[in-house]
């Protein structure tokens, strides 16, 4: 399936996957993030149960410690 991840088209070798699985597949490093799928916030408690499907628009940003 094809998704838009941070405004870039990405080809994934699966038809549907959870947010958690996508994070694992893409080997995203930093542990704290903000994720929206199609403009809707996915809180961290819902990473396992929220599914990403063909055509979805995923926004992901990393949060770095320091302030």
């Amino acid at each position: 399936m094809k998704i838009i991840l941070n405004n870039r088209e990405e080809e994934l070798e699966t038809d549907v996957l959870s947010v958690s699985k996508m994070l694992e597949m893409k080997k995203f490093s930093f542990r704290m993030r903000i994720i929206k799928v199609n403009g809707i916030l996915v809180p961290k408690e819902e990473y396992d149960t929220t599914l990403i499907q063909d055509g979805d628009n995923v926004l992901m940003l990393y949060l770095m410690s320091g302030g």
Partner: peptide, 12 residues
Amino acid sequence: FDRDDMKQMLIE
């Protein structure tokens, strides 16, 4: 905030 987990909590 300073800590990344607190940043996430606040923003969410």
